[in-house]
Design a protein around this nucleic acid. Structure first.
Lengths: 139, 139
DNA sequence: CCCATTTTGTTGCTGAGTGCAACAGTTTGA
DNA sequence: TCAAACTGTTGCACTCAGCAACAAAATGGG
């Protein structure tokens, strides 16, 4: 194995692959982590516009168009309109989208627990805390 | 921000993006994490064959062909031959490949320290330990 | 009040990356 | 001995992301 296992970047990548597998088991096929992220961001920030979503997700605006398109095809969001700026078409969460979030989030958390069962509860909490701190998501 | 920051998978992804940026700054353009992983695996396991590398990296054999191709174009590896099985062409680390590893690894570790400077040394060590345990790379 | 500049969303193009299917050469095992 | 399995390889198709360019709309300095 060599020096590979010492690298933080490598271990993060492996961990992410593991949790992606967990995500795939928890969520119906066709839904990507990026799409769920969009839904959660819209739910937490009503009226948020595509450009802002693109900046937060760190993708191009044209990429965000396509991501929102797929969410719209699934009827999880629809493109609304702003009264103050007719350029923006802020994605709005639909009933279906809200129901999807409510249905899938508990399953995702359950699968995360399952896939990280090698860690004790306190270890898992500490791992989350350290990652949040690393990502500047301080409490 | 909402429930997103609570998800371990999301935090792992964010952390991996951060460390990927660190890697990009530490390594000359054109070298990907996958390529370095291959070099390190070959260095630690002389004679390892492409199929095994593909299994470890969890990619298709045809994908591994192309990854090794790029390492060969850079003269970091050359395709050897096995005396016991004429089918296998195990990639062999060249002088250049060895020199590259020796030159780049310290820089990578230095950049990792820089990019994770928000963590204390003990926190960083604990994060590494937890990730290694999660990835079943127990000491 | 104008008109140049900026912003927003969008589309087309391109390049990178991956898996799958198929293949020839080689080895294995019943 | 010969069918099956394995190794490396190539071609094809598909996905994904960024860049450039665009029209419509908003903004701001003269």
């Amino acid at each position: 194995m060599g020096a590979l296992g010492q690298l933080l970047g490598y271990n993060l990548r492996r961990g992410q692959l593991l949790l992606f597998e967990s995500f795939s088991e928890a969520v119906p096929a066709g839904i990507t982590p990026a799409q769920l992220t969009i839904l959660l961001l819209i739910a937490a920030n009503p009226g948020i516009k595509q450009t802002t979503l693109a900046a937060v997700l760190d993708v191009d605006r044209s990429t965000m168009v396509r991501l929102v398109d797929r969410c719209a095809e699934l009827r999880f969001v629809r493109r609304g309109s702003s009264r103050t700026d007719r350029r923006v078409a802020p994605p709005v969460l639909t009933e279906r989208g809200r129901a999807f979030i409510d249905a899938v989030m508990p399953e995702i958390l359950r699968k995360e627990l399952e896939y990280t069962s090698v860690l004790t509860p306190s270890e898992r909490a500490e791992l989350t805390r350290l990652l949040r701190k690393l990502n500047a998501l301080e409490d």
